[in-house]
């Protein structure tokens, strides 16, 4: 994943198709692939009128599913923003054996089918396994078929986002800035907080938000680990799937519209952060 937003427009290479042809192709692609489905689902969601839409999304099972999706994704985003920044820091500034291997393994969650992620977690934390059994019987913590399992799945698949956003920014930091802070009497901690952190903060938030948006609609791994218990461990994506299966397209569309809306806000947030970061 690359999060490069060049400050200046690059010199435009001359292509044979003509500028308008190129623009038309790019815009058509966007419309067919993204805009039309988004519009259709909004129309579908609101077809029965706002009243029906409201009824669909305020159904206790729907509300609970939406809320579960949002808070688990939120917890994941916070944890991964902190741990991802830490990992990026270690990867950039420390040498250790296996560093290269770790660096390439980080992208694995992007590549592994999410269903496989779910299966892995069941094998690891299932009630019959060593870890799962211990947590359940000794500590009374249920991982699978409960929110902890969902969060674990989301942590796994949201892992690369913050790291890959923060890593290049850290690598590009001017070490002399930190040394300048030292000579001005700033401790390592103050230097990190006042010099390093402000420089990497936009990248941290961007990575966190992208991870959050990705986690919000996660289906594959969650359908396996969550157990799909309405009001307890059923996320919005799984709820939507259930509604589609039951032939209730209107309810599925309505909840989808909400998920879409949250994602839209998050995406705009990422964009805003990058636009505001004028000093980069």
């Amino acid at each position: 994943m690359q999060l490069a937003f060049p400050a200046k427009a690059a010199a435009r290479p001359h292509l044979p198709f003509g500028e308008w042809g190129l623009r038309a192709a790019a815009i058509t692609y966007l419309i067919v692939l993204i805009a039309i489905p988004v519009i259709v689902i909004n129309i579908e969601g609101l077809r029965g009128g706002l009243d029906l839409f409201w009824t669909d999304i305020t159904r206790p099972a729907a509300l609970s599913a939406l809320w579960l999706s949002i808070w688990t994704a939120g917890v994941m985003a916070v944890v991964n923003t902190i741990m991802g920044t830490l990992t990026a820091y270690v990867l950039v500034f420390y040498k250790f054996p296996g560093k290269r291997l770790l660096d390439s393994v980080i992208d694995l969650p992007f590549a592994i089918p999410t269903l496989v992620t779910g299966v892995m977690l069941v094998l690891l934390y299932g009630p019959q396994t060593l870890i799962g059994g211990f947590l359940d019987q000794q500590l009374g913590i249920r991982v699978l078929f409960a929110p902890p399992g969902i969060i674990l799945a989301l942590l796994f698949l949201g892992y690369p986002f913050v790291i890959r956003a923060v890593q290049p920014v850290l690598a590009g930091l001017d070490a002399n800035q930190q040394e300048a802070a030292f000579t001005l009497g700033a401790s390592s901690w103050v230097t990190f907080r006042r010099v390093v952190l402000p420089a990497i903060f936009p990248a941290m938030i961007t990575g966190g938000l992208l991870g959050f948006a990705r986690a919000l609609g996660e289906f594959g791994s969650i359908v396996i680990v969550s157990g799909n218990i309405p009001m307890r461990s059923q996320t919005a994506a799984v709820y939507i799937f259930g509604q589609v299966e039951g032939g209730n397209m209107a309810a599925a569309s309505s909840v989808s519209v909400i998920l879409l809306l949250v994602s839209l806000v998050v995406t705009l947030g990422v964009d805003f952060i990058y636009r505001r970061k004028s000093y980069a």
Binding site: N176, Q177, E179, A181, G185, S187, R194, A199, A280
Partner: peptide, 30 residues
């Protein structure tokens, strides 16, 4: 002693100003 405790001012070739602070904030940092 650590650089923090030596009572020196250091100027680097590449300026190394804190990029997210104004000129005045940079000067006020110490």
């Amino acid at each position: 002693l650590s650089p923090q405790k030596r009572g020196i001012g250091f100027v680097f070739q590449n300026y190394s100003l804190f990029q997210h602070m104004t000129a005045a904030q940079n000067i006020a940092f110490g």
